[in-house]
Amino acid sequence: MIGSVGAKTIGGINNMGRFGRFVWQSAIASFRICTSPRAYALIWTQMHIIGVRSVPVVMITGAFVGMTLAVQTYGQLAAMGLEERLGVLINIAVVKELGPVLAAVMLAGRVGGALTAELGTMNVTEQIDAIRSMGTNPIRYLVAPRILACLLLTPILIIYGDLMGIVGGYFVSVIQFGINSQAYWTHSASGVELWDVTIGVAKGFFFGVAIAAISCYKGFTCKEGAQGVGRACTEAFVASFICILMLNFGIAVVCKAIYSTFWSLKTLV
């Protein structure tokens, strides 16, 4: 019993170590290919595959988040006579937290799953070994373009999600609940700061890298057979999901600290 717990712990630490090395190698490879124009075609292809087809799902997610928030919060604000401030609440929540996190989760499912399945299949059919046998670094050829594509695209997709969330919230608030459109926007604009938007979008960089790195790693270490690939996909999604939530929490803590430092400075001045 104790032995098996110990063995699992050691296994876990080994795994973390291997993942750390993988991330490190991927980071180096990513920096390298940034400087070689020949690789841009690879990044471009991946951006096309990852990005373009993800736009609809991310937009749908965003729209429903905005709409649901409006429905859920209207009652409480209206009871206090604050319904014109609905916009602030919805838009802050969408732009800062729900938009980025839910878009990232959608991407972890859609993109992460596809990456793990693709690389996992390449792994079990020896295509990754074939790349090595031809003197090419598979991390540089396969992983780096995917990480860079996710890094660049996740923030953009988050912006799409945010926009749809804002539009969705607006429609429900103004058309269904009959809030004055101008008041809605004025309050929203005064309540949502540029800082909030920046944080929300900047999260995309972290989420994108995390999704790509975890999914590619799971693909590279996937076990033989259809079952192995399936399991790798599941594990990749769960790990990405948890990683997104943890990163989100970490970023919130750090941003809070930064924001309050600067904010207190401002009031001193």
Binding site: E118, M122, E126, A130, S133
Partner: peptide, 24 residues
């Protein structure tokens, strides 16, 4: 290291038992 090996490997050709063609 893998990177140094990659230079050596360019002097080899390896036919995999399963072919290992890139299916994409």
């Amino acid at each position: 290291s893998e990177n140094e090996l990659n230079k050596v490997r360019t002097q080899y050709g390896f036919l995999f038992q399963g072919g290992a063609l890139f299916d994409s």
